[in-house]
Nucleic acid binder design. Structure first.
Lengths: 362, 362
DNA sequence: GCGCATTACTAATGCGCATTACCTGGAAGG
DNA sequence: CCTTCCAGGTAATGCGCATTAGTAATGCGC
């Protein structure tokens, strides 16, 4: 009945390259201890078995000498931490156009992650990760990390729900309603927009129009809400004409439109920031086409940052979007989730930007 | 001698919650097959064992029904690689200023990595690597990836040598001599600079000056070499005055300097691109201070991209640095190394940019 | 009716690590 | 001298999957 040892199934023929990183077992052999001891030393845990200082430092020395690094997959599989945070952007790849990119977010994310001892894994929507024939699980790749941050408004709700339901730590950058239970971090567009109106009102404006995209993203609705609240707070009237909704600002925002508004007593126009900056660009163009100058004939404000190609233009009155801070806040939230804590949905303040495109009405 | 089965060490007390995602084993049980069969079906591989259509579709149905998703950690562990490429930049954090940042590189890196099924791990010089409580060697952490890309001219040679000697796949972005055996990917500054001279010569310029930093980086010396080669090829003379070296362009590039050059018959000035764009900025300032206009009184060229704050100025004659392509090329090279192949040091072509700052001399 | 190839599948194994029950030698306690 | 205790460590185990040797069933030729 002696078991003849079978030749080994499961063995990956692609044997480890000679230069591959060392394993704990190799560190252990070199240090004259067991793999378990190495794990205990390098795991950094305080609890459990105790290790003498002498052994500990010997293991550390050897590990350093051999250039040991944890295998994230193995660590993860053994139900431990990676110190890896995922960042998933739903563009096919990271945006090529620097100006409209997530880079400012990423900067904040990176700083905060580094400060907390995490490294970042960039996942992208396109990479198939190998296979998954039949099971569409583009998102499950992120489970390699301890938690994951999602950017972009096109994150599929169903797959996110899946992660959330499984208890995987997820934070979305930008306010978001669905799926239920999804943690997010967003900018306080409502307050910031309210303040823009308050300042315009203080300058003497009585009729203010908001130009917004024809879109139901929270980023848009929040701004509109802030504007309307601001009008009410300032005791100004808001009507159907208060919100001008357009999908093609370049076509509908004309000099004629501006003149019509002024006929109605409108002295200030506030534009929503969009990805493309089209609304703001169209607005500036219309003012020019009308032969007006900006703070004098009409006041303008922009609820966000101007597009980069208009960097030479006068600074718009409005508010800054603290992208980098948002990234940092998102990481703080995510690490809290990873640690099993819960936190509130934090709204990050958007600082007001006085700018030079508004002034008292004539 | 009967082995009493010990109670099970290694078992993680955080037992799986009942609602957690199903494993292949559970799919297998529900479909009445073995776990191996499930793996074969869901693995999507064509080779190896064959599976009948009936079994295959049964497994797929059950998998879908149960909402099966691969565990990436297990997958990567079993496959002995993690489909992760590292990106290490030697700045404290990723640069905050988008304009001077590595972002354009990163875009190319990201695209190419995604296309090849790799995700990216971002390392920064600063992050202490929370896990490695005792392994402070920042560079060892990169070994968690299958290979690593290095950006920036301050990458420490000694530590890089260590990785290279260990056979760890490493690619440096930018031409680099040390350590021996380090793979790199760079832009062909020599050819591009040569072409700039050739074009200027074709326009009729006979005396051309190069303004360069007081620095021995390959990026600088390559440009100088290209300029000198270009002069020789055009049959023009090169002398001590040909190369103007300065550490403080803002101070030394004055209107007087320009006039002195013109006295000597110089009709075109070529500036090296620097991180700050100082040389180009100083040059434009000097032309203005002299009361000259650019293509008319003197021709200018820039060996690279102008700084972002000069975006409004006329497009400089010179060449573009294909940052995004460089990133892509670096990833191609790195994945080749990971696969055990060797490739040449590729030089990426810098396309000539005609621009509007040069013309025939008066 | 026997050998042999082919098809369809399963059992066994290990990837690298964290975890935990157990072991061992010596000091303390009786 | 025997028991207890503790510090310091080790062996064994499993996480979920991919891989591959092996096996059972079937077809085919003669």
């Amino acid at each position: 009945m002696t078991e003849v040892p079978r030749s080994r199934p499961g063995r990956n023929p692609a044997a480890r390259r000679p230069g591959a990183r060392p394993r704990q077992a190799e560190v252990a052999k070199a240090a004259g201890v067991s793999q378990a001891t190495v794990s205990l030393v390098l795991g950094g845990k305080e609890r459990g078995a105790t290790i003498s200082d002498e052994t500990r430092s010997r293991v550390l020395d050897v590990a350093r000498e051999l250039g040991y690094a944890h295998d994230p997959a193995a660590r993860r599989l053994a139900a431990a931490r990676n110190n890896l945070l995922g960042v998933f952007s739903f563009t096919a790849t990271f945006p090529t156009d620097v100006q409209h990119s997530y880079y400012p977010f990423l900067v904040g994310v990176e700083q905060e992650a580094a400060a907390r001892g995490y490294d970042l894994v960039l996942f992208t929507g396109s990479s198939s990760g190998g296979a998954g024939a039949g099971v569409p699980d583009a998102l499950s790749r992120v489970r390699l990390a301890d938690g994951c941050l999602f950017l972009g408004r096109h994150a599929p709700t169903a797959e996110l729900r899946r992660l959330v339901d499984d208890g995987f730590p997820v934070v979305h950058l930008g306010r978001r309603q669905e799926p239920e239970g999804l943690a997010w971090v967003g900018a306080d567009y409502v307050s910031a927009s309210r303040e823009v109106v308050a300042r315009l009102a203080a300058q003497g404006h009585r009729r203010i129009v908001l130009v917004r995209e024809d879109d139901e993203a929270p980023a848009s609705t929040d701004r509109e809400r802030g504007i309307l609240e601001g009008l009410v707070a300032a005791g100004l009237e808001a009507g159907a004409w208060t919100v001008f909704r357009t999908a093609a600002p370049a076509r509908s925002l004309t000099a004629a439109r501006l003149r019509a508004w002024r006929e109605d007593g409108v002295t200030a126009v506030v534009a929503e920031e969009t990805d493309t900056g089209d609304a703001w660009r169209a607005l500036l163009g219309a003012v020019r086409a009308a032969g007006w100058t900006c703070p004098d004939d009409i006041s303008l404000a922009l609820l966000g940052d101007p597009p980069a190609d208009l960097a030479g233009e006068p600074t718009p009155t409005g508010f800054d979007i603290p992208r980098s801070r948002l990234g940092g806040a998102a990481v703080r939230r995510l690490t809290a989730l990873v640690a099993g804590e819960t936190t509130d949905e934090p709204l990050v303040v958007c600082p007001h930007r006085p700018g030079t495109t508004s002034g008292p009405p004539r």
